[in-house]
Amino acid sequence: MSQKLDVVQILLLILGGVPTTLSISLFSFLMGVAIGIPLSFAKTYGGKFPQILVDGYEKIFRGIPELVLLLMFYFGIGYYIPTPFKNAFFTGIFVLGLRSAANQSQVYRGAIRGIGEDQMIVARSLGLSKLLSIVYVMIPQVFMFSTPGLGSEYALLIKDSAYLFFLPGITEMLEIANGIRKATGVTTTPYLIAAFLYILLTFPIATWLDKWGSRKKKQLGM
């Protein structure tokens, strides 16, 4: 198939990859929240042993290139445990989520420091356990203190979703752009359009998150 495509047709084709790109980023971001929050509190309030564990986790997942992790999980671990790791969509989200958790844990830890000890002391003085204090007093404030760090993390995930290009069977934006180049021989336009869409997907949301956090903090006098 070597038909000629105009810009609009290319754009429409690549737009078809947006749901995949977005859902990979969104799910791995949420997984990062679900794991990153407990990690950050374990490292802040846990004893020596949890601290060492979290530290090790962060070093590993921040240190190894995500492409290595992706191929390792998909081909390596997937060879022995095909369900679910031979599912590229799952493994992509899983790996990006683990990596994001390591990043987010650091972001949240900064936020916990920013909130200060006092909120925890007051909660404990009312008779709340450590866990309840974290859930009802710390976590709601942690998110306000974590923007813009969370905005950058989301932007990073949108970009890194492109690594899933290297796994079979995932039609995210880069995969489609590359497919168009192969099929039509148009070498530049598909990539330019994909690049433009990546920017469009990252900055508005990251900026909005940042603004939301600043506004909230100002409103609440933090």
Binding site: D118, Q119, I121, V122, S125, L126, G127, V137, M222
Partner: peptide, 20 residues
């Protein structure tokens, strides 16, 4: 201790309300 603290009302020097 959690139960005991619930029975002791503490008011702080630097006020410290939950800001959220």
């Amino acid at each position: 201790l959690d139960k005991a603290r619930a029975r002791i009302g503490f008011v702080f020097q630097h006020i410290w309300l939950f800001r959220h």
